[in-house]
Design a protein around this nucleic acid. Sequence first.
RNA 1: GCCGUUGUAGCUCAGGGGUAGAGCACUUCCUUGGUAAGGAAGAGGUCACGAGUUCAAUUCUCGUCAACGGCUCCA
Length: 598
Amino acid sequence: MIKITLPDASVREYPKGVTGMDIARSISEGLARNVLAVKVNSEVWDAGRPINNDATIKLLTWNDDAGKATMWHSTAHLMAAAVEQLYAGAKFGIGPDIESGFYYDIDLGDRTITTDDFAQIEDKMMELIKEKHEFERRDISKSDALAYFTKKGDEYKIELIEELADGEITLYQTGEFIDLCRGPHLPDSSYIKAVKILSVAGAYWRGDEKRKQLTRLYGISFPKRKELDEYLVMMEEARKRDHRKLGKEMELFAFSQQVGMGLPLWLPKGAQLRERLEAFLKKVQEEAGYEPVITPHIGNVNLYKTSGHYDKYGKDSFRPIETPQEGEAFMLKPMNCPHHCEIYKVIPKSYKDLPVRFAEFGTVYRYEQSGELHGLTRVRGFTQDDAHIFCTNDQVKDEFKGVIDIILLIFKALRFDDYICQISLRDKADKVKYIGNDANWEKAEQAIIEAAAEKGLKTTIEYGEAAFYGPKLDFMVRDALGRKWQLGTIQVDYNLPERFDLEYTGSDNQPHRPVMIHRAPFGSMERFVAVLLEHCGGNFPLWLTPEQVIILPISEKYNIYAEKVLKLLKNSDLRAKIDCRNEKAGKKIRDAEINKIP
RNA sequence: GCCGUUGUAGCUCAGGGGUAGAGCACUUCCUUGGUAAGGAAGAGGUCACGAGUUCAAUUCUCGUCAACGGCUCCA
């Protein structure tokens, strides 16, 4: 007998070799029907895999992320099985579950799959599901695994197996389809009730752009038909909220081939919106002791050589601008920090002057690969709500708290209620790749953790995610549809003060190095407006919306009175307009509604 | 940048080797109205751009550009 500890800490005894499914059945039939996999100690196992030692287990259902992952991973196998039947000779790369659904990378040779083929593949998958195939696990030696896939002619699997050690290779068989896989999988295919292939795209084998591009099929599956329908409705809702679509409809911004890709044009209503956001933050920053500065849109290449950005990003930037004479070279400003460092240096600083906080809505230009551009979220020219705080090591914590306050104020004003914070720290095992001394890092990391805790933030800590120049705190928000976006960021920087030789005179009358903090509560105006648009579906809070009120006269006879009302509203600082078109009230109401006038 | 898909009126889209269509938007006229589309007429397009095939190309082929879906990347 072995001892099985359940999540409620109760311990039950079962014979050696008991499976998750057996345990579920011993609790209730209903539970057994819903069990997709089982977590044994810290590993997720097949529900049918024998447990031979004492263990702490958790039965996983659709309500657990790992349960969903198991279903999606199994469905990926099923899709591969269907594709193999329909496209003889197809070779398979990898097919994992992802945040929502799964994909499989497939080499189809000369053939292609288009959206028109999805239905056929889905039908075949449903056929396989009805045949109730098991996902049969099999331990196999490395040489046998290689022999099988060599015979099959699947060089991708062979490459994967080559990298594995003998003794840790398992295969899973579903019907005719045999895949290299560590599992776990569903007990059998009948647990899947609804499948949908979502999209097809190219993806490099192993993410390497020098290697062959495979066909990647994305899909999703559910334990109930109804859940698939709900998911599809939600996707439809997300499409309606796409900021590119809303931005066009609401006349906020546009792009022009003439101006160039990735270079947004802000239309009057969009510019108004953006300026209102900027004014909001400027006021908050003024109260928080920030001083506005303004710097040029270009800078001498030497500036970026000093900052180190030229070495790191120079070849991926817009090419330097050469002057007709003098042999000078300038870069379009890719970030504001070096300029702010130069501002810091203009006037000698004492410890009594710190912290200094330079703020600028600084427009920067970065060369992004053409395929990366996406609406307002990824552009080649954008404006950061940037500021740089220069302070002492001891002031880092308070400055972080001050910035957190600003970010939370913004989130509150714009109704981002659901956010999480990620603290990115050094990789403990590999401290050498970071610049700056150990004691300061330690202090700053501690300061961030404490500042976040004292502000009551819900945080996750990621080791190894820090930038080489310092630790950081990032804010991610969930929008109304549950999608995650990274917005505000606060970063400590030990690198630039060093490179620019920034100093202040301490109370000991000796020169000291200040710490620099980069921060941008919005991130960039472009990105923030995009996220905000999708978050509120275009229905901005009243204070932000371009047109707050519309007056709808019932007939032309009342236009003069409407003008009077308009004046009253404008005198009260309300943004209003009159719809004096020769239309009926019903039509005007409908149009105002469509135009999202609150 | 790479792979794939797409490009027809301001917008959303249909069509298709013989130089173009709908709905909405727009203009004018009629209607002067009561809570989500009143009626009529009109204007508007080098069918992304450049080559090629053809008697003839918006349609077929190739190239360029751009958008979209991914991949890779993101100071």
